[in-house]
């Protein structure tokens, strides 16, 4: 399913630009993620991934361009757009003085979810799913990074948004939890949730995403399926890592290592 297949765009970036003073962090980024798609957003550190995601979720105002969630401009109608999306930062926004259950309750209230038995049961199921149920009474401030990541994910899933923007969601997770998250994302996508997955773990992107966009120095250098990227890079049979390195045009790592070791010897 690509834009050409006639799918409905759930997330759309149109010529997004973000400048901080004289620094242009994002420079005319455009792409679409279709409903029910897991869309990969790849880039090196500092390439502009997080800034783009923060513009898409309304945390940062674009210098120019438009961010649409389910066709709604997030700057023009922020409340309607925000009600549809969930964003997980690479360092989740959590409150250290709340327990996991209290935090989920807080988020559910923020999004005006009806309270009562159903909500309680859903919270209990999510806490069990992420192995947090036995952290009875422990404050989030005492959680490990992985546990914070899990409670952040749980706070998104409790309200079933139609669009998920995830910035490095498997960061700090143990292999079992990382696998759980991957399976969960596939299941959510199959049910119609759109997932925009920002990561620099290329194996995860290759395994989960049908299409990816690669951002480099604030600009999109490629968008498409793996086959389309291979054609673009002229590298038949290459994996995503090779394609990424080729498209972002960095020096060959082997060459850099040799230079480094020559200098050391």
């Amino acid at each position: 399913m690509t834009p050409l297949d006639g799918g409905v765009a759930a997330v759309e970036a149109r010529q997004l630009v973000k400048r901080f003073g004289v620094v242009t962090a994002v420079d005319g980024v455009s792409f679409q993620a279709m409903r029910g798609e897991i869309f990969g957003f790849l880039g090196a550190n500092g390439a502009g991934k997080t800034t783009t995601l923060r513009m898409l979720c309304g945390l940062l105002r674009p210098t120019s361009g438009t961010a649409l969630i389910d066709g709604i401009d997030i700057m023009a109608a922020p409340l309607a757009a925000k009600a549809r999306l969930g964003y997980l930062d690479e360092e989740p926004f959590v409150h250290p003085h709340l327990t996991g259950r209290e935090f989920l309750d807080f988020v559910a209230d923020l999004y005006r979810m009806p309270s009562g038995r159903q909500r309680e049961e859903r919270m209990a199921r999510l806490l069990n799913l992420f192995d947090l149920a036995d952290k009875n009474g422990e404050l989030i401030g005492g959680y490990s990074h992985g546990m914070r990541q899990k409670i952040g994910l749980a706070s998104l899933l409790i309200r079933e948004p139609s669009v998920l923007l995830l910035d490095e969601p498997t960061n700090g997770l143990d292999p079992r939890s990382a696998r759980l998250v991957k399976d969960l994302l596939e299941e959510l996508a199959a049910r119609g949730t759109t997932v925009l997955l920002s990561t620099h773990i290329l194996e995860v992107a290759q395994a989960l995403c049908r299409r990816v966009a690669i951002i480099d120095h604030g600009r999109i250098v490629a968008v498409g399926t793996m086959d389309e990227l291979r054609i673009l890079a002229g590298s038949e049979g290459a994996n995503l890592e090779d394609l990424f390195l080729k498209l972002t045009a960095g020096p060959e790592s082997r060459e850099m290592i040799e230079r480094l070791l020559e200098g050391a010897s």
Binding site: F106, R112, P114, S115, E121, A124
Partner: peptide, 15 residues
């Protein structure tokens, strides 16, 4: 956890 009856939508201000 004490499951209660549905109390309608949660209030962000109270939360």
């Amino acid at each position: 956890i004490r499951p209660g009856r549905a109390r309608g939508a949660g209030s962000p201000a109270l939360a």
